[in-house]
Computed example of a mutant assay.
Amino acid sequence: MTSWFSQHLAGLQDAWRRLVASPLNTALSLLVIGISLALPAAGWLFIDNLRLAVGNTGSLQQVSVFLADDADAAAIAEVERGLRQAKLGSVRFVPRDEALQALQAREGMADLTAGLPRNPLPDAFVVEADASPEALEAAVKAFAELPKVDDVHLDSAWMRRFDAFLHVARLVVALIGGVFAAGLVAVTFNTIRLQILAHAEEIEVARLIGAADDFIRRPFQYYGALQGALGGLLAVALVTAGGLLLADPVAGLAALYGGSFSLHGLVPLEIAALVGGGALLGWIGAQISVLIHLRRLG
């Protein structure tokens, strides 16, 4: 066990020395890897922030249940029980007088409603629903069958469009991430190829004195993994810096719409995924390069 640990530690140290030995090449490779990882990460983070800014699509839905003109207190209580049993969210009763007052409070509506001989608005319930679009549509049909319910209104078209947009956006980011992941593997492949060619004589000597292929491959594998992990850390720094630059403008934009919103950055699990994913992709690129080019060297 001690021997195994020592061998891997030696391979890791050798890989680190090779990284430090060519700072310019290392910096350029890390920049390419960092950007390759930062772009899809930033896209995913943007979608997540957009979802949070808009809020849960279901929780923003208001189901308006309009009662018939002849609905008495018993009928209203029965409808309320039916709405609460559905457990979609909060239920609020809006009397017709309150609805008329709210309408009159709107700009330009006071004069229009002043000449009405009577209140034309019905009593209604407003359900702040927390459910999926499918569940809401099924609930609308059930609410319409309740006694003394005249009409049920739900505008779910925007919700479906928003869900579809998020789905497509996630697919696009995933495709972009796949393309950049392949590019990261290719960058590591080429870097390790150059490293192998530069150390071809050392590899020859190592083989002549009986070094195993695992011993020869190990520093290159660690080189690729280290390069990928450092590129992941650079990606984290780039995404974090971008978030800090956008924080104030986004907060100002939200304030213009009468709300408050602050961008959230990468959480520890996402940071670990970026660094670990970079290391894994770097290791894969190094492994492929080592297998091909060491075989060519005989």
Rank of each mutant, 00 (worst) to 15 (best):
Q195M: 08
G11R: 05
V173W: 14
L297G: 07
Q85H: 11
L238E: 01
I288D: 01
L246N: 03
V267F: 02
G258S: 06
R51V: 09
G177K: 06
L52D: 14
V126Y: 08
R81P: 02
F189I: 03
G265Y: 02
A124F: 04
A144H: 08
A86E: 12
D14W: 01
A86L: 14
F46S: 15
D130W: 10
I292M: 03
A99T: 12
L294N: 08
G242I: 01
P133S: 08
W283T: 00
D130Y: 10
G224Y: 06
L246Y: 03
D70P: 04
L24N: 01
H8F: 07
G276D: 07
T188Y: 06
F93V: 06
P95L: 02
V205T: 12
A181I: 03
S260E: 14
A142L: 08
L194P: 02
V91Q: 07
T57M: 02
Q13G: 13
Q227W: 05
F66H: 12
H167S: 12
I196N: 04
L230P: 03
F5L: 15
H167Y: 05
V185Y: 03
L269W: 09
L281V: 00
L197K: 12
I33E: 10
G276F: 04
E107A: 13
K148H: 14
L9R: 15
S156A: 15
G177F: 06
Q61I: 13
G277H: 06
S29K: 04
F220A: 02
M1F: 10
A182Y: 06
W44H: 09
A74L: 12
V267A: 12
P117T: 13
R218P: 02
G11D: 08
A15G: 07
G177E: 10
V126N: 12
G252R: 15
P122C: 07
D70H: 11
V91P: 07
L175G: 13
L194K: 06
A139H: 10
F180Y: 05
R92K: 14
L266M: 10
D248L: 14
L246P: 07
Y257D: 06
V63W: 10
V152A: 05
A241G: 14
R81E: 09
V152F: 09
A38R: 11
L263C: 07
D151K: 15
S6R: 15
A225N: 06
G58S: 11
L112W: 09
P249L: 10
A53T: 11
